[in-house]
Design a protein around this nucleic acid. Structure first.
Length: 583
RNA sequence: GCCCUCGUAGCUCAGUGGAUAGAGCACCGCCCUCCGGAGGCGGGUGUCGCAGGUUCGAAUCCUGCCGAGGGCGCCA
C-alpha cells in the first residue's frame, strides 16, 4: 500500500474482520478508523460501539470479535480494546520504516489519483470590466484557485471560467459617456489605464443619476450594444481589452492560474439567452408576472409568502443575471459536457444559486449525473469588525493590498538576509503573497475573517511564513549534509518524535482528499501546520548532523527531513503558495 | 415577518457523533556553549451563547429562545 490513506486501509481490514466474524457488511469508511490523539496509540477504531445496538451485543464483545479476526499482521503491531469498546491500533515499526523509504521515491507522496475522474467547470474571481480589481475579488480568486489545483492534483479535469461582469446596463452608461467625451471606435484609446476607466465609470454613474436625458441615451446605448451595433461594440471591446490586461497583471502578481483565455464573461452567453428562454417556455416553466418573464422554482418564497421568481426577461425586454446564470449551466453541461459545476461566490448569493440549480434541474440541464455546488465564503473584515474598506470608505484596491503585503514581507526578510537583491525580492513576493493567501485559506471559508497584517505575517502560529520558514530550515540542513537521501535509503525509527513525525507525514493523503472533497482548503492548512509542528519536535530531539549521530541514523533522519520538506512544498503548492529555498 | 449562516480560552481560530475540547498570540516561571534563537519545557486558561431533547456517548444531530451578520421581484 503505497498510495492511499492508512485509515482507509485499516478500515478495509476491519470490514473484512466483521464480515468473517459476524457476517456484517460495512464500507471501509464506516469502520470509523481515524488517527488517535492518545499517546501510545496510532489509530483507533470506533465501530464496535455503533454496531453494538444494531447487533444486540455488548460493544466490547463486538470489539473482541473484530480484534480476533483482524487480518492485519503485516502492518498492525497491537490491537487492544479499551473503554466502552474502542480498538486502539499500533502500527508495526518495520512497516512504518519501509513505508517511509518507499515514499521518498514517490512524487505524489502517497496521494492516490481518483478512480473516478470528473470534468469540473469552476467559476471564480469574476471581476468587472472597467473597474479595478479590489479586495472583494480576493477570496473568490484565492479559494477558487486552490480548489482548482486540488482537483487537478486528484486527477480531475478542471476548466476554469472567469465570469466577467462585462455586459448590461453599466456599459451602456459608460460607453455613452465616452462618446460624449469624444471617443470613437476608430481612434483607439490605448493610452488609458484601468484606473482611468474606473474614473470614467464613476463619472458616467453620476451623470446617469443626475441627467434624465443622458439616462435615456444610456439605455438606448445598451440596446445598441446588445443588438450588435458595430461602433458600440468596438468601443466596448476597447474597454474589455484594457481591463483584461489589468486582470492578467493582477493574476500574475497574485500567482493565480487564470488568464484571458479563461474568460467567459456575461457577454459570452449573450447569444444563448434567447434560446434559454425559448426552451424554458417550451417546457412550460415560464409565467408572465408584472410584465416580466419569470420562472418560479418550487420551494422559494418572499417575505409575504409569495413564490419567488427568477426573472429571465425584464419587463423592458432586457436580460438580467438569472438568465445568464441559467445559460451558463446549460452551456457547460450541454456544450462542454462537464459533470460538476462549482461557483466560488460569496455566501449572500446562496439562495440565488439554489434557485438557479432548481430551475436548471426542472429544465433538464442538470440531471442526476451532474453535481452543481455553490462554494460560498464569508467577508473579509477590517479592524472594526465590519467589511474591510479604505479610510475614505472605498474598496481596497487589490494591487495596492498585494504591494503592501510584499513590502511588509520584504521588511521582515531584510534583517538577516544574506540573499542578493534579486532573490530577496522573489522571497518577499512568495512570503507576502503567501501570507495573504494563507490567511484567507486557513480558516473555514464560510466564515468571515478579520484581516490583520501582523497576524498573517507572524513567524509563529498557523501562517504561511511559519511553514515556509520550517521548509527553508529543512533545506538548509539538507544542503549542509551535502547529500540528498537516495531513493531506497533505509529508515530507522528510534525516538518517539521520529515516529510521530512519520505518522503525520502518512496522513497527507487523508488531508488532501478531505480538503478536496469538501472544498475546504483549510483542512489542508491545518494538516500542514501540524506537520511543521511535528517536525519542530523531531528537530529538537533528534540531532541529524551531530557527530554523535551514527551514519545510518543520520541518513534515516535525512529521509524524514526530506519527506517533511516535500510534504510542505507539495501541500503549499496545492494552495498556490510558493516555498523559497532560503528565507 | 419568513429563510440561511454564525456564536468554542482574554484575542485570532481549529475541532461537526467518540475517550480528559485543542493550537497560536497575550500572561507567568524555568531551561538551553543551540544541525538557521524567527528556540525549548512547564503553568491556568473553558457555564463550547442559553434551555430542553435524541443517543451507550453531543461543541457536533433535533426543537425553542437570546445575540450577530446576510438574503427575500425586474442591480449583479
Amino acid at each position: 500500500m503505497l498510495h492511499g490513506d492508512v485509515s482507509v486501509e485499516l478500515g478495509r481490514r476491519v470490514a473484512t474482520a466483521l464480515k468473517t466474524a459476524l457476517d456484517v457488511d460495512i464500507t471501509p469508511a464506516e469502520a470509523l478508523v481515524r488517527p488517535s490523539n492518545r499517546s501510545g496509540t496510532d489509530y483507533q477504531c470506533d465501530v464496535a460501539m455503533s454496531l453494538g445496538k444494531r447487533l444486540g451485543r455488548a460493544p466490547r464483545e463486538v470489539a473482541t470479535d473484530i480484534v480476533t479476526h483482524l487480518d492485519a499482521g503485516d502492518l498492525v503491531e497491537t490491537s487492544e480494546i479499551a473503554g466502552p469498546g474502542f480498538i486502539n491500533l499500533v502500527l508495526q515499526r518495520t512497516w512504518l520504516e519501509q513505508h517511509a523509504t518507499a515514499l521518498l521515491g514517490d512524487d505524489r507522496l502517497g496521494v492516490a489519483r481518483t478512480e473516478r475522474p470528473r470534468r469540473f467547470a469552476i467559476d471564480y474571481s469574476s471581476p468587472n470590466v472597467a473597474k479595478e480589481m479590489h479586495v472583494g475579488h480576493l477570496r473568490s480568486s484565492i479559494i477558487g484557485d486552490a480548489i482548482a489545483r486540488l482537483l487537478r492534483f486528484e486527477g480531475h479535469e478542471v476548466v476554469p471560467h472567469n465570469h466577467l461582469g462585462d455586459w448590461g446596463t453599466p456599459f451602456g452608461m459608460l460607453i455613452e459617456h465616452l462618446v460624449d467625451e469624444g471617443w470613437t471606435a476608430a481612434a483607439g484609446h490605448d493610452g488609458h489605464t484601468i484606473s482611468d476607466l474606473n474614473g470614467f465609470y464613476q463619472e458616467a454613474r453620476k451623470k446617469f443619476d443626475a441627467d434624465p436625458d443622458f439616462a435615456t441615451r444610456a439605455r438606448g446605448r445598451v440596446v445598441l450594444l446588445q443588438g450588435g451595433d458595430e461602433q458600440t461594440l468596438a468601443l466596448w471591446q476597447q474597454l474589455v481589452d484594457e481591463s483584461t490586461r489589468h486582470f492578467d497583471k493582477v493574476y500574475e502578481l497574485l500567482g493565480i492560474d487564470l488568464t484571458h483565455e479563461d474568460i467567459h464573461g456575461e457577454s459570452f452567453y449573450n447569444p444563448y439567452l434567447a434560446e434559454v428562454i425559448d426552451e424554458l417556455e417550451a417546457k412550460e416553466l415560464t409565467e408572465i408576472s408584472d410584465g416580466a418573464v419569470c420562472v418560479f422554482p418550487p420551494g422559494f418564497t418572499n417575505r409575504d409568502g409569495d413564490r419567488l421568481p427568477l426573472i429571465i426577461r425584464k419587463s423592458d425586454g432586457g436580460y438580467g443575471y438569472a438568465t445568464t446564470d441559467l445559460a451558463t449551466v446549460r452551456y457547460w453541461t450541454r456544450e462542454r459536457g462537464v459533470t460538476d459545476l462549482l461557483y466560488v461566490v460569496g455566501t449572500p448569493q446562496a439562495q440565488h444559486f439554489a434557485m438557479i440549480f432548481t430551475a436548471s434541474r426542472q429544465a433538464g440541464w442538470l440531471t442526476n449525473e451532474h453535481r452543481a455546488e455553490h462554494i460560498g465564503f464569508g467577508s473579509i473584515l477590517g479592524e472594526d469588525g465590519k467589511t474591510i474598506r479604505t479610510r475614505a470608505g472605498g474598496s481596497v484596491k487589490l494591487v495596492e493590498l498585494l504591494t503592501e503585503a510584499i513590502d511588509r514581507a520584504a521588511a521582515i526578510v531584510a534583517d538577516r538576509s544574506e540573499l542578493g537583491d534579486e532573490e530577496r525580492h522573489a522571497v518577499a513576493r512568495a512570503v507576502g503573497i503567501g501570507a495573504v493567501k494563507y490567511a484567507d485559506l486557513s480558516g473555514d471559508r464560510e466564515r468571515d475573517y478579520t484581516f490583520d497584517w501582523d497576524r498573517m505575517l507572524a513567524m509563529d502560529g498557523n501562517t504561511a511564513v511559519y511553514l515556509q520558514y520550517a521548509n527553508a530550515r529543512i533545506l538548509s540542513v539538507l544542503r549542509k549534509a551535502g547529500e540528498a537521501p537516495a531513493p531506497g535509503t533505509p529508515v530507522t525509527l528510534v525516538e518517539a518524535a521520529e515516529r510521530d513525525l512519520l505518522l503525520k507525514l502518512l496522513q497527507l493523503p487523508a488531508a488532501v482528499t478531505s480538503a478536496t472533497e469538501t472544498y475546504l482548503p483549510h483542512r489542508l492548512c491545518t494538516y500542514l501546520y501540524e506537520t511543521a509542528t511535528a517536525f519542530t519536535a523531531f528537530y529538537e530531539r533528534c540531532p541529524i548532523l551531530a557527530d554523535t549521530t551514527p551514519e545510518d541514523l543520520r541518513r534515516s533522519r535525512l529521509v524524514l527531513a526530506q519527506l517533511t520538506s516535500k510534504v510542505l512544498t507539495l501541500g503549499l503548492s496545492l494552495l498556490g503558495i510558493g516555498t523559497p529555498q532560503r528565507l
